[in-house]
Amino acid sequence: MNPIDMFALGINLNDDGTVLPGPRRMSGDSDGWTVAAFHVETDEDVHGDHWEMHPEADEAVCVLNGGARLYLRPEDGQEEPQEPVTLTSGTAFVVPRGRWHRLELDGPSDLMSITLRRGTRLERRLA
């Protein structure tokens, strides 16, 4: 039994009730939910130039340390986001299933995400 380095591996919460370490990835066909922690320095580290969407589940975006602004794209498909949700150390926001979103950092931060990655989509943000 060894501790799991959450900044190197994710934790997969499988449909059969098992909890196993596994690769951290933005999308995939895993059988269950993924819990992943990230140390990020720049907006590039959180693919700030892309919108992201999880069609099969909500996503909990958690700031463990640092700060970020989470933008939700309007549901009418327009590119201009609504006012950002400000996340500080120890706070989280639940992004609804199927809602396009992106992050911008306030500085170096430690983040955690919890979602079902199956079917995750990325779309390049227009300039």
Results as ranks from 00 to 15, higher is better:
77 G>W: 12
84 P>D: 07
88 T>D: 11
28 G>T: 07
36 A>R: 12
20 L>H: 02
57 A>V: 01
43 D>M: 04
101 H>F: 15
90 G>T: 08
108 P>T: 13
126 L>A: 15
123 E>H: 11
100 W>K: 03
125 R>Q: 12
118 R>G: 05
76 D>V: 09
17 G>K: 10
76 D>C: 08
56 E>I: 05
62 C>R: 00
31 D>E: 14
21 P>S: 07
91 T>M: 14
33 W>C: 11
122 L>S: 10
21 P>K: 07
55 P>V: 09
69 R>S: 13
87 L>G: 06
77 G>A: 12
29 D>L: 11
32 G>L: 08
3 P>C: 00
41 E>W: 00
122 L>Y: 13
58 D>G: 05
52 E>R: 06
58 D>E: 15
74 P>T: 06
51 W>P: 01
112 M>H: 01
27 S>C: 02
51 W>S: 01
64 L>K: 01
91 T>W: 04
110 D>T: 14
93 F>P: 01
28 G>K: 10
49 D>F: 01
38 F>H: 14
125 R>H: 12
74 P>R: 15
110 D>L: 07
94 V>M: 12
96 P>N: 11
120 T>E: 03
58 D>T: 09
100 W>E: 09
97 R>H: 06
60 A>L: 15
73 R>Q: 15
54 H>Y: 06
97 R>A: 12
79 E>M: 03
34 T>N: 11
19 V>M: 14
124 R>L: 09
115 T>I: 00
93 F>E: 05
5 D>I: 03
72 L>F: 10
5 D>W: 06
20 L>T: 15
19 V>T: 15
99 R>E: 12
17 G>H: 11
58 D>I: 06
79 E>C: 05
32 G>D: 08
120 T>I: 02
64 L>F: 06
11 I>M: 14
40 V>P: 02
64 L>Q: 07
28 G>N: 05
21 P>A: 05
23 P>M: 05
106 D>I: 02
46 V>I: 10
47 H>K: 05
79 E>H: 09
102 R>H: 10
94 V>P: 07
101 H>N: 04
4 I>F: 02
12 N>V: 10
35 V>P: 00
12 N>K: 09
125 R>E: 08
21 P>N: 09
77 G>C: 12
87 L>W: 02
53 M>I: 11
127 A>G: 11
48 G>Y: 05
76 D>N: 15
19 V>W: 13
51 W>D: 02
13 L>A: 14
53 M>E: 08
99 R>T: 15
2 N>Q: 13
93 F>Q: 07
124 R>Y: 01
119 G>F: 09
22 G>R: 04
56 E>A: 07
29 D>C: 01
55 P>A: 07
99 R>M: 13
29 D>I: 04
50 H>Q: 12
27 S>W: 09
105 L>W: 05
83 E>K: 09
119 G>N: 05
54 H>A: 03
101 H>G: 01
21 P>V: 08
16 D>H: 11
117 R>K: 13
59 E>M: 04
89 S>F: 02
15 D>I: 04
39 H>G: 03
3 P>V: 03
74 P>S: 08
84 P>A: 10
81 P>H: 13
94 V>L: 12
44 E>Q: 13
32 G>I: 06
59 E>Q: 15
89 S>C: 06
19 V>P: 02
52 E>K: 12
49 D>M: 03
112 M>P: 00
26 M>Y: 07
111 L>H: 07
